[in-house]
Design a binder for these strands. Sequence first.
DNA 1: CGAAGACTTGAAACCGGTCAACTGGAGTGG
DNA 2: CCACTCCAGTTGACCGGTTTCAAGTCTTCG
Lengths: 252, 252
Amino acid sequence: MLDQCDSGVGAISSRAQPFSSHCGGKACANCAMRHVTFCAALDDGELQKVSGMAHHSHSEPHQIIFQEGDAARELFNVIEGTVKLYKSLADGRTQITGFLFPGDFLGLSATGEYGYTAEAVGKVTLCRFPRRELTGLFGTLPKLVDRLLRISTDELSAAQDQMLLLGRKTAREKILSFLFGMSERAKKRGQPGNPIRLTMGRAEIADYLGLTVETVSRTLTKLREDGVLKLPRPQEVVLVDAQGFADLAMGA
Amino acid sequence: MLDQCDSGVGAISSRAQPFSSHCGGKACANCAMRHVTFCAALDDGELQKVSGMAHHSHSEPHQIIFQEGDAARELFNVIEGTVKLYKSLADGRTQITGFLFPGDFLGLSATGEYGYTAEAVGKVTLCRFPRRELTGLFGTLPKLVDRLLRISTDELSAAQDQMLLLGRKTAREKILSFLFGMSERAKKRGQPGNPIRLTMGRAEIADYLGLTVETVSRTLTKLREDGVLKLPRPQEVVLVDAQGFADLAMGA
DNA sequence: CGAAGACTTGAAACCGGTCAACTGGAGTGG
DNA sequence: CCACTCCAGTTGACCGGTTTCAAGTCTTCG
């Protein structure tokens, strides 16, 4: 199901994979991410230029992709799996600033150092680009910068929504917003929006929503008791009434 | 002190100002913001190209500059005064996502609509650019896009810090971080970092930190009682030991 | 089958929120 | 010039949602 340089969105491979593989030639042209992330901004000829500099790599669960403060030498597209981005305080308190799924992009930095840590949640496949080589194309590929600017402002918008959530929503509202967001993003990736598959654990949901594990668990239980959702297994959320749920999550 | 198209950073004018004024010719060349925000990315010749499309305007306290959902037709530089950006829930709960001061930029949007509301905190002077005209220059002025990308990633980085603050810090830590940030930003604008001038009210600080007015007030009182700072007037914070304060705020 | 880890549930404590009253300075008008 | 009003800020008492601490339960996996 997984070729060296190409994978189906959300496909799950049971085959052993090389940790890293260089992809020359028309690798990018065959990539499942061809029409998403910044690659979509390029025509076939332009894609050729970046094809040579990219390569795929695989990360194991809990593996750190890069840490806050590391020199930002690479940019990444997520091909498969879930990545979490987070910042921590000295005493260990952690805030997850975002989850990334197939088709998402990461690695932009204004300072030359990554501003946060990126870690694989489950098994992850990434497409890596050397930053200097890619930014070197900015002059000749203006569409590339446009696209990155757009990705960046998109992320900023999401960050502002998350600030509203963290600063002003109750635990119940946080959970509802989170589930709604997960559902919408799954749909955008062409996956079903209703049975929601949670690829991250309760502790990670808690660190994303500014809550504790216990509160996340209790709140989900309460939503189940209220008939809003079912939890056949911890990682699977079935929405009883998807439309009613959307209204709830939006704040009706 | 204030010309039509030029003002000193942080200068306070007592003269009546026209609400809006078009600035042709070498207006931008004389602007106090010439070497900050995205203007700094352009040489004198390039600046000429944008000079004609820009004009300054003045806003009164509490005046809405644009609202969440409005078509994003303009981009702005803050010339003078304080601007707040915020998002609100249907029931009125509000989260301020950022304060902008002279030299700061706003108005980027991925969707074509502003994703948040911008409001003048005190009297404000803005430099306005029609979005379509400015983005039309992207092709010929790659440095402009680079700069906007950098501004955007800077903001994203600040947003992530704010998420950590909102999700994981205590009220005391939030206030300390806020004051520290205000001090650092004042220094970057070439103003003193120690007596901190708070141009926004307690309610706005509260909406920025995810607290209530009462908690902001109580926490400031506590910091005063602990000898960390003095409050000669509500809008003026004197740090008793600036270095010790910085350590505190960073989490020592 | 046993151990480890993730998730859930329970009881009690606490931080920050809510509601309410008070203070003080700025602006206004008598 | 002083009294009044208004509003921002402060302070107090109480409340409650979330956290904390602790003990279960369930699943997974060796």
